[in-house]
Design a protein around this nucleic acid. Structure first.
Lengths: 333, 333
DNA sequence: TTGTATGCGTTATCAA
DNA sequence: TTGATAACGCATACAA
């Protein structure tokens, strides 16, 4: 492994000149530049990144914290982030927090340890105060999940309104008894989606039945367990609104384990439009988020922060889209 | 941001002593240790990781290259890797290559740039020669995907045998016309799985029908497209063996788009046992790989390499398990 | 048990 | 346009 000194010696110049050539400084004679480049090529030299990082105190890489890797919802988001980051020569590193605060705290400490220049997090298992404290000192963008009134920059959709639209769609189909499968209430987007459900019902003067609101883990198993619990309790309902597609898929499985078919015996809708949603049987009626755009905007905001600018909009709200497919069924009068 | 000098000054000791305390060196008086720890606490000091990395020329972090993030198959593998890595105080960073050699090459260059201490890759879009060249200089473990005769350390199952077992199971059910949905042939495990199919048929003296072997992209859409192409061509078959669960799910969807039900009209089996497999309807008969173990063994091999040891086994072959569920149906005589 | 001093490879300041 | 040199924060060999 050669160093800048080796190159300097071989080219017969000083290390300062080699450094200038490496960084395309304009103040170098073109013949000097050629000599240096020749030496670099001959030695197959490349700068020691660790030394560069140390000297400049940055790493040109950003960290993306996902609640879990292995969720297709994030695929296009990551692609969007990478698109922006790579263009500015930043590396994108990904980790999964599994909702574990200890793990997540460890990831955030990568900021103070200068292991990464900034963080985009889709998780939020840390207390708000701690996150805000980090955000004061380091570039952080929170996406898809966020907190009540905070100054943390975030990129998201209007979850409450989207959820309300979705529930209204079901009510317009004629459903009166609509079950809601809610996600962990400590996560604001799940609270917002639940709020959308409540608002939609209230607006129509449909009484809220707490028995129809079930909390569950936001995955296939969670939806499966929740709906079976509900079916065992003999509560009456004709439709299920899940706060996420994986939950909806689990719910459909749970219904069919009771020999109930979707949408004939019960309508089911989800949220997020994951890859599976269009390919599951029945295909899922759901809400599509602009994933690519969420990714690009998050990355752009983060790079702004890294460059020391304040992003244009701290709370950026993007558009969503209602996707009507088989699982919501027809008008039932 | 305080440095080791600030701590030393506050504690009234030298920076060497502070360093000793930080690294739990035994040769420190316990009262000195207390003084230093008090100063560290008071200043909320933590060592500058960039300086540490530079000084030691390692980063205590390893990189995991996935073909794509957003595939649940890797969830437990990552958990296994993290379990081992965290125990040795290594960070685990994840990236997705999307089968893009340019991207993957960029990731491997993180080794020469000393951004990470080693790589576990589940992708393999780079030429063998290039990978081996890296492996000569840096710690690299290839898992789940590998190359023909190579010295690259790898952890995997016997894909050919597993595939053969799976096909044999279908043949024992009475199937004679078994369609095979193959993955990209440049990836050895997909070639191996295809080989298992061919071997199983040949052993039983069942002639190979090339029309029954379809290449497809290894995802839901790929399976869907492939089976519809086959159905449109009017070839006769009673069972489908897919080289992966996502393909199998797509195939089932494709069959039902032709009003064919699984397993009644056609049996379908997959490979990998992803989360969806047990929860899809019909649930998938498949081959389960020991994901957690793949993760832990890969990480252990990599840490061995990082420590300068040669791993015990360069080619580590783990056990698999045939999982019989609904999609393969009953004996059809 | 503790302190002094050196060097890791680079960037950047300042002088020539 | 170029070179000499300091400094970044830490680990560690060696001396005390």
């Amino acid at each position: 492994m050669f160093t800048i000194h080796d190159v300097a010696r071989k080219a017969g110049v000083s290390i300062a000149t080699v450094s200038r050539v490496i960084h395309n400084s304009p103040n170098v004679l073109s013949e000097t530049r050629d000599k240096v480049n020749a030496a670099i090529k001959e030695l197959d030299y490349s700068p020691n990144k660790l030394a560069q990082n140390f000297r400049t105190q940055n790493t040109k890489s950003i960290l993306v914290i996902l609640p879990e890797i292995g969720n297709t919802f994030y695929t296009d988001i990551i692609a969007g982030i990478e698109n922006v980051a790579f263009a500015s020569d930043y590396n994108v590193l990904i980790v999964g927090s599994r909702g574990n605060p200890v793990l997540e705290s460890r990831f955030f400490s990568m900021l103070s340890e200068k292991q990464v220049d900034g963080i985009i997090t889709f998780s939020a298992s840390l207390p708000l105060a701690e996150m805000e404290q980090y955000a004061e000192q380091y570039p952080i963008v929170v996406s898809c999940r966020y907190f009540d009134k905070t100054t943390l920059p975030n990129v998201t959709i209007d979850n409450e309104k989207a959820s309300k639209d979705l529930v209204n769609y079901m009510l317009n189909l004629g459903h009166k008894k609509v079950c809601y499968l809610a996600g962990p209430s400590d996560i604001l987007i799940y609270r917002d989606r639940l709020k959308g459900y409540l608002t939609a019902l209230t607006t129509r003067n449909i009484p809220i039945d707490q028995n129809l609101i079930i909390n569950c883990e936001p995955n296939i198993q969670g939806g499966y367990d929740a709906i079976r619990k509900l079916l065992n309790s003999n509560v009456d309902f004709t439709a299920v609104v899940a706060c996420g597609d994986t939950i909806a898929v689990g719910a459909i499985r749970g219904l069919s384990s009771f020999n109930l078919s979707v949408p004939k015996d019960c309508a089911v809708v989800g949220f997020d439009d994951i890859e599976l949603s269009s390919l599951f049987s029945p295909s899922l009626t759901t809400v599509r988020q602009p994933q690519w755009q969420i990714g690009t905007r998050s990355a752009e905001q983060l790079l702004d922060l890294i460059q020391g600018n304040k992003p244009a909009a701290y709370n950026e709200v993007l558009n969503y889209e209602l996707i009507i497919r088989e699982s919501s069924g027809e008008y039932i009068g």
